[in-house]
Design a protein around this nucleic acid. Structure first.
Lengths: 336, 336
DNA sequence: TACGTTTTTGGGAACGTTTGCACACTTTTT
DNA sequence: AAAAAGTGTGCAAACGTTCCCAAAAACGTA
């Protein structure tokens, strides 16, 4: 069973014109007379002509599609980024193909290669927490695939990047905990590989320094899998509690919710005694108990900016050599 | 800047064969000799040959892609469905294109038509809460586009459908409220258009009947926009509270979280006094305060089943005429 | 009228595949 | 020894576009 639609050829035949003329009329080329243009347009409208995007892609050697890699869509931060991406992409007549790495390097690589073989015109990617080797991305990039990184970006890769002001976000959150009287502030964070991990750690440290609080490395716990496994989080919590923190600063969406969950499960009696501040874009944060202070990233905007940069690379006449790293401010939403 | 890759022609030239032979060797056709097949495969491997899916699509008149329409991906129910869809689709070498209706009919129609013009091979759709007129879907279906509905399905449309056992899920949830001593149980639900709304209302009613509780229509509130606007929910809550319900049964993910949010915002003092049971697949439900009893749908499985049905339609030799409606059981997770 | 210009149109190749058909070469059958 | 059947390969068309190039039509000018 197959979809029947009319083609340029059909129109040409019906109107006694050549396919070239019809194509020109439809694409509104200058060399065409007003008269035939109107004729063709009217007829095309009548038979509800839709250009076949596949044929067009084959001819033009581009697909008008961009690939997205996030760790998971069931994460408000990423779904908001995706909304931002779509808002720009659809405007410019691209469609998006979303893939999830689930924080796995293997899955990420597989998905990227799958997308590339599907001939996407460009790639938007936030690296998985496992990812260390990005040579496969370098290869694709070298072959001419435009790539823009967002949120989790690699250090030594010359291309556009869009990130939140992670240092300031972390500083603000940590400072907030300090100002509300906390002195033993733990830091629960992602895999050490990630750019966001490093930047957020620095912000945390800077706030401690400002208030003359000693930095204690044992208060920092890394989660290799970004909180994808609850066991990982429960282990971290278990190791942290004996140090008797009165506050925890958590550096990602998934970790923040996962940590509260682990706290409630393993030590419900202390869960409400520890002040929590964490990165999260969850729109359900007001429902959480214990409640928390959250650092919200401008996710929608991040998606928009990244997409604009990517499309500018795709549509550039000559290879782009000047790259920018856009930094967007976060917002601190204090616990009520 | 463009992506350079080797083609069948290049291989043919390099090996002194014809393109047909190379194509056949790569696709493992029976007419080819072991010898040349090995030769071609080895060379293809060496130059890292990737078939151009666009050319293949054009020739075969199918894209190996399926479209998905959900109201929003930032909803655990739908993101779990999508994970189920992907798990099957990728196995069978299809890729998926996700679109969000944001509960808007206009957006839904636009997205479907956009997908159709992108030549998807089939469509998986959960209707928006606004949708009443599905003639645009009938047209596409009549033209040969396979469609499978899930979750929110239309009444009179002959095709495969996959739904949860909404009646039983609602019955169980309502019964649970009754058994914990509630007698004035309100029902907050979606737009009346939706199939799920009707089925869930029936389950609610049946539970009341079983326990000889009078059904009071004024206790049922419909939300036309499925809870996309907080004003809508606050209004519903405002109208409901004077009736002094001691329990609320809520019929969708978005509404459940939205309702609790509205309750806490407008009447924090009663929020904890009303027992809540609602459909939700949120994985954060354990963090919510007030806590609630939830009806979980087998979302992942729903996505899998729907995708299997769709692919069977796409790949059917002759038009499918026997359709099934699969009904999957829900799970009641009691408040702790 | 004949010529050059400009404007509009058509022919046909190309994008990278798949596949029906014909051909050449082997092998088997009579 | 010739005919029949079986293998493996190549040619060429097709999928629906776009676009280069040439041809035709329309117009202006001498």
């Amino acid at each position: 069973m197959r979809f029947e639609t009319s083609t340029i050829k059909d129109i040409a035949k019906a109107l006694g014109l050549s396919t070239s003329t019809v194509s020109r009329a439809l694409r509104d080329r200058y060399e065409i007379s007003e008269e035939t243009k109107k004729l063709v347009l009217a007829y095309a409208e009548k038979v509800n002509y839709r250009a076949n995007p596949i044929a067009r892609s084959l001819k033009e050697r581009r697909s008008y599609s961009i690939g997205i890699i996030v760790s998971e869509i069931a994460n408000n931060f990423f779904s908001q980024v995706i909304n931002g991406i779509e808002s720009i992409a659809y405007d410019k007549d691209y469609h998006v193909i979303i893939s999830q790495s689930h924080e796995s390097y293997k899955q990420e690589k597989l998905n990227v290669e799958h997308l590339a073989s599907r001939s996407i015109d460009g790639l938007l990617i936030a690296l998985s927490s496992e990812t260390q080797d990005i040579n496969y991305l370098r290869d694709l990039y070298a072959k001419g695939l435009p790539i823009v990184f967002f949120d989790r970006v690699p250090k030594d890769f010359e291309t556009h990047k869009v990130i939140a002001n992670n240092f300031k976000g972390s500083f603000d959150a940590t400072e907030h905990l300090i100002l509300s009287g906390k002195r033993t502030i733990a830091h629960l964070t992602n895999s050490e590989n990630l750019s966001i991990t490093k930047e957020r750690l620095e912000g945390y440290k800077a706030a401690l320094v400002k208030y003359h609080i000693e930095f204690r490395p044992e208060l920092v716990k890394y989660c290799q899998h970004g909180g994808m496994h609850s066991a990982e989080l429960e282990q971290a919590v278990k190791e942290l509690l004996p140090l008797q923190p009165d506050g925890i600063f958590i550096s990602s969406d998934r970790l923040t919710t996962g940590c509260i969950m682990a706290l409630k499960k393993t030590n419900p009696e202390v869960a409400h005694k520890i002040a929590i501040a964490g990165f999260t874009n969850s729109n359900l944060v007001e429902l959480f108990s214990p409640s928390l202070t959250s650092v919200k990233q401008p996710a929608f905007e991040m998606g928009q900016v990244a997409t604009e940069l990517l499309i500018s690379m795709i549509e550039a006449k000559r290879p782009v050599t000047e790259f920018e790293t856009k930094v967007l401010d976060t917002e601190l939403v204090k616990k009520r």
